Amino acid sequence: ITIHVNGVTYHFDNPEEAEKFAQKMAKTYQLKMEIHNGEFHME
Rank of each mutant, 00 (worst) to 15 (best):
H11E: 06
E34A: 05
N6I: 13
V8P: 00
M25V: 06
F40K: 04
Q23Y: 09
M42E: 03
M25G: 00
Q23V: 11
E43G: 10
Y10C: 11
T2E: 05
A18N: 00
I35H: 04
Y29V: 04
T28A: 10
F12T: 00
N37K: 05
I3T: 01
N37E: 06
T2H: 14
M33W: 13
E16S: 10
K20I: 10
E39K: 04
V8I: 08
E19P: 00
H11D: 04
V5E: 01
P15H: 11
I35V: 08
H41Y: 15
I1F: 08
A26W: 13
I3C: 05
Y10I: 05
T2G: 02
H36P: 02
Y29C: 09
E39G: 04
Y29W: 05
A18K: 02
N37Q: 05
L31P: 05
M33G: 04
E43W: 15
A26F: 09
T9I: 11
H36R: 13
T9D: 05
K27D: 15
G7N: 08
M25S: 01
I35S: 04
K20N: 08
I35A: 04
I3N: 00
K20P: 01
L31V: 12
N6Y: 14
Y29I: 02
F21P: 00
K32V: 14
A22Q: 03
M42V: 05
K32Q: 14
H4D: 02
L31S: 05
V8F: 12
N14W: 07
E17W: 05
L31E: 12
A22Y: 07
E17A: 10
H4A: 04
V8H: 11
K24D: 13
H41K: 03
K27H: 12
N14R: 08
V8A: 08
F12D: 00
H36T: 07
V8T: 09
H4Y: 11
L31G: 07
T2P: 02
A26R: 06
K27W: 13
G7D: 05
E43Y: 15
M25A: 02
G7Y: 06
M33T: 05
H41M: 05
H36A: 04
Q23I: 11
N6R: 09
E19G: 06
E16L: 11
E16G: 07
M33F: 12
F21Y: 02
T2K: 10
D13Q: 09
I3Y: 04
V5R: 01
V5W: 11
N14F: 07
K24T: 12
V5T: 02
T28W: 15
E39Y: 05
E34K: 06
K32H: 14
